[in-house]
Every structure is written in structure tokens, then in C-alpha cells.
Design a protein around this nucleic acid. Structure first.
Lengths: 215, 215
DNA sequence: TAGATTGTTAATCGATTAACAATC
DNA sequence: TAGATTGTTAATCGATTAACAATC
């Protein structure tokens, strides 16, 4: 529909969404791009430009209705539909994600948990029993699943991704330290934590270099 | 030193670093920007441009020495120094990060773990006892700590961040769903998982809209 | 109506890609 | 030397910011 919206715009949309949610909780009814710009530390121009990629949600002389804009951005992000998810990898990270209640607000609902470690079989997380990956095929043929969360170590991640794709999964949230090799109709969103930590390290190192710590 | 290197460049640098590490393991000695471009799916031009922000690491007619480039990028990212870290929040996510052995390669060494839940006091993760946040001040005055990893729920994250800053912490790796309000000499790197998941949701929704699922 | 603020076009800025001379 | 490939400048492309007419 819309053409060529960049990833950066979508990231910002998620961020607007978070702030609008907080404003709703604070019973704020309307907000102008100018006010929001001050709160969020982005330019008002960018906010208006971002929103106008998807249509006009405001009103001249008034601004934006917080509740309405919140709900419209939610629709753009697809948060108005259920997204059944399965988790691959029931380690600490997987467990953390499974227990994250925030995701349910956006329609992200965990429906299955899988691991390769037989010792974990049957143990429940959030009421869901850990299953073996050997059951994955049957599970996927009997259940509608949209998103697979991949928190397995990289050795197993690549082949598990293949298995997921072979069985119809179209979206992977990848926490493994590899770049998955996937067909173009499969959406992959990577979370590479070590890249994030290295960015922090770079910024810190650089800051010190330029600010020459003495004392 | 270098002027205005964008975050995008640094992200890519981390990614080059990962691939170069893998190439080293595979005993590959040299690589050209052209070959690397094919493996990593970025343009050769971009690779050369990125690297030349920091100096010339290659040789005309030859390419780049894998080991040397790996080590040089490591230095740029600050991975040639130790980075003592403390963890704030010993939940599943915090535990997952504490147990992540990958980070130690980059000099990121966990030296302390803190939580607010008194029931966790003294329990060990990776040989480190969980301490109470009330001990934080003393701890920081007796130990050199560079980076604080913040995995507390957002209710406690903001005030804990203030406490960290008051006690001299200059870098925060923030996993809480808030934008920390910090002085400009404090480096913050945010990992907002819900923004990542929403991006995935958007891309999936959008793909479906444009590819009109029938059947 | 007058004031405010959007939607949108135009101007600027920065990042990516292309091209090629330098050089190993 | 001839071939390959870098380092680097120039051209293109895209994203951000500024400006302002439309309009509530």
C-alpha cells in the first residue's frame, strides 16, 4: 500500500506509540507536534512528516487527539490483531521474553515453547509446557502460528530457522548471533545484543578520547 | 579524534567484526571488499567508505588482511580494554545477560550483580552473589566500574539510573522501557525490545497487505 | 475573525553508491 | 609489467528540517 517506508520511521512510530500510551494514562486528551517534540526530543517537523506517510491524523489549529492517534499508530503497526508466537529456546533469555507481559498488549500471544534439552521437557513457563523440537512440525500443522522467537544458541539457530521456514513460519524474531539466510517472503527482525554493547563501548571509548580524562 | 561517525557506521563495524572473527576461525587470511560485500550483502563501496573513516587498513591489489583488520576494528570499538560491568536486576533477562559468555571476548567483565528483591540476596550467578541496591554506593566507591546494565522494571529503572549516575557511572546499557533522562556525559545505549517486535509486526502486516493472501 | 497548528512542498543535510586515479 | 583492489573524490539518493499556505 504505502511505498517504501524506512525502518527508521517505523522505529519512531513505535516510540510515538509508547509516549502516546503514557499520555493516555495521564489523561492527556490532545497534543500538538510541537509539544510532543519537546517531550520526545525530536523535531516537530519529523513527527508530522512521519505521520503523514500514513495519512492525516491531526487537525489544524488543534493538534492530535492522543487516544485516536495512539489507536491509529497501533493499527499501522499491526497491533490490532492477534499474533500467535512460539518460542524456540527456553533458556534464560527465552524465559525472560516468555514472561514479558508487555508484549500481550500488542496482541503478541505465546502459544508454544520448544527446546532441544530433553531435561526441560514438560516443565511449564507461563502455563505452557516446554516441548521438544521434534514435535514442532506436528504443532505447526495443527496450530496457526505467525511469529517464531529464536533464542537458541547459534549452532542450532540456523537449522531450526530452516525447519521453521519449511513448516510455514513467515516471521522470525532472531536473537541468535547469526544472520539468517531466509527466502524473501520471510520477515526477519534481528536483535544482536553484542552489536548494541559494542556500540556502547565505542561511544564510551570515543567520549574519553575527546574529553581527555586527567586526574 | 574522528569527527561525527554515525551510529549506523558503528553498527556495521560491529557486524564486520563478527564476520571477520568467523573468517579468522576458518583460517581465511585475506579478503577484498568485493568478497566481503558478497558474503555480507552490503556494497563494497560502503565497506571501504566505512573503514576509511578510521584509516587505511588495506592494500591496493591485495585487499585486507583478515586478522589485522579484525584486530583494528576491535581497537576502534574499544574491545582491547577491560570493561568492568555491573548488572542491575537479576531477573531472567539479567541472568541471561550475566550468563552470556560472548561478551567476555570483548573485555566486558561482570563484577557485580544487584537487585531490589531481598529474597535473592546472596544467591550466586556465575559466581557472583546478588547484592542489595543499598550496597551500590559503597560498592562503586571501592571498585572501578564502567558500564551498568539496567534490566530492572521501568518503575525502578529511572531512579536507579539516577543513583548510578550520582555514583559516577558513565555508561548505561538500558533494557527498561523508558528513555532515561541523563546528563550529556553519560553514554546510554537502549535496547527497546518492544520496538523491535513492533517493527517485525509492521513488516509482517505490510507484507501481507501488498501480497494479498488468498487461499 | 484571529490564532494555532496541521499537511505538504521546498531546501538542506547526510549517507550511500559510483567512478577512477593511485599503487601494491 | 599487468591485474587487482584500495583509498578517495564526485554523483546520487534518501532522510531530515524549514517554511508556509491551507484550514480548523
Amino acid at each position: 500500500m504505502e511505498k517504501g517506508i524506512s525502518g527508521a520511521v517505523i522505529r519512531r512510530l513505535s516510540r510515538y506509540y509508547r509516549y502516546l500510551g503514557e499520555l493516555t494514562e495521564k489523561k492527556v486528551e490532545r497534543i500538538s507536534s510541537g509539544e510532543l517534540s519537546r517531550i520526545m526530543h525530536v523535531t516537530a517537523s519529523q513527527i508530522r512528516q512521519d505521520l503523514n506517510n500514513f495519512g492525516g491524523f491531526g487537525q489544524q489549529g488543534y493538534g492530535y487527539n492522543v487516544k485516536y492517534l495512539y489507536s491509529e499508530i497501533g493499527k499501522i503497526l499491526g497491533l490490532d490483531f492477534q499474533h500467535p508466537m512460539i518460542l524456540l529456546g527456553a533458556g534464560n533469555l527465552g524465559t525472560a521474553l516468555a514472561n514479558s507481559p508487555d508484549f500481550e498488549k500488542g496482541g503478541f500471544r505465546l502459544v508454544g515453547i520448544f527446546d532441544i534439552n530433553p531435561e526441560l521437557e514438560g516443565i511449564c513457563i507461563r502455563g505452557l509446557p516446554i516441548r521438544m523440537i521434534s514435535e514442532l512440525k506436528d504443532f505447526l500443522s495443527s496450530q496457526k502460528v505467525e511469529i517464531a522467537i529464536l533464542t537458541l544458541p547459534k549452532e542450532q539457530a540456523a537449522q531450526t530457522a530452516d525447519l521453521l521456514i519449511d513448516n510455514g513460519i513467515k516471521a522470525i524474531w532472531n536473537f541468535a548471533h547469526i544472520d539468517l539466510d531466509t527466502p524473501e517472503d520471510v520477515i526477519v527482525e534481528n536483535v544482536h545484543l553484542s552489536e548494541s554493547l559494542m556500540t556502547l563501548s565505542y561511544n564510551l571509548t570515543e567520549y574519553r578520547k575527546t574529553h581527555d580524562k586527567k586526574s
